[in-house]
């Protein structure tokens, strides 16, 4: 089997490595496919559905982050339908919790906010849920604000896969899903948290933040996570 394959992305012929996902292949060529749950270096989960693309000959939409490239694959990353669906998904996220961007620690540095701007979401047509979502301020250094959580599980994965602590997981189901620390403990009471802060740095929104950072101050350094994973990979 050839190591390299040729695929078409939006009509353009590109080369990709076998084993790469569509998202990796596209990103390597500088192409943009929106995503929120994906973070390079962590196991892709295909949960946010923003990276859905159309693949010729396949009836359903496929997540670019988990679908491996195949030789001769023709991928469409932009279409009227995909644009509409992506906007709707973003709107659903905004409607789900209380994203008060204006006063958020991650204002102007938030991936959700940036995607909304980029994809032209100017309002949320769905009624807001305005749920009661709490905060966990117990940790000395960090804060969990459920109001801003989009359940992308990057923190869950980075903690389990990179740090090896598995402090975070998702409890409940459906609309009642929420991030929990271990078996629903206060963060400060965690027995496995190493205080490494990788979860904070991988979080795309203001859900996980450093304590004491005021509005607009929380800039996440997701690329450090990716670099760390790559460095580990080299070591291994």
């Amino acid at each position: 089997m050839p190591d390299r394959v040729s695929i078409r992305i939006d009509g353009e012929l590109l080369h990709a490595r076998l084993g790469q996902t569509i998202l990796e292949a596209a990103t390597a060529q500088g192409r943009f496919i929106p995503s929120l749950c994906h973070l390079k270096g962590l196991t892709p989960v295909g949960a946010c559905r923003l990276c859905l693309v159309e693949v010729a000959g396949i009836g359903r939409l496929l997540p670019a982050c988990t679908t491996p490239v195949q030789d001769g694959m023709a991928v469409t990353t932009r279409s009227d339908r995909l644009d509409r669906y992506r906007r709707m998904i973003l709107e659903l996220l905004f409607a789900e919790r209380n994203h008060v961007c204006a006063v958020c620690v991650s204002n102007n540095h938030c991936e959700l906010q940036a995607l909304a701007r980029r994809l032209g979401v100017t309002h949320v047509r769905f009624p807001y849920s305005f749920p009661k979502a709490g905060t966990d301020l117990s940790h000395r250094q960090f804060v969990l604000d459920q109001n801003r959580c989009i359940l992308c599980t990057r923190c869950v994965r980075v903690c389990a896969e990179v740090e090896g602590a598995h402090v975070w997981d998702v409890a409940g189901r459906g609309i009642g899903s929420r991030l929990v620390c271990e078996l629903n403990r206060a963060w400060a009471d965690s027995r496995s948290c190493t205080g490494c802060g990788k979860c904070v740095q991988s979080c795309p929104t203001g859900a996980l933040a450093m304590k004491g950072f005021a509005a607009e101050e929380m800039v996440k350094r997701t690329e450090t996570i990716t670099r760390l994973v790559e460095a580990k990979g080299v070591r291994a």
């Binding site: 295909g46 559905r49 659903l92 359940l151």
Partner: peptide
């Protein structure tokens, strides 16, 4: 009964 993993189904 939605598991809550993906946004379209959850929200």
């Amino acid at each position: 009964e939605s598991c809550g993993k993906c946004i379209p189904c959850r929200v």
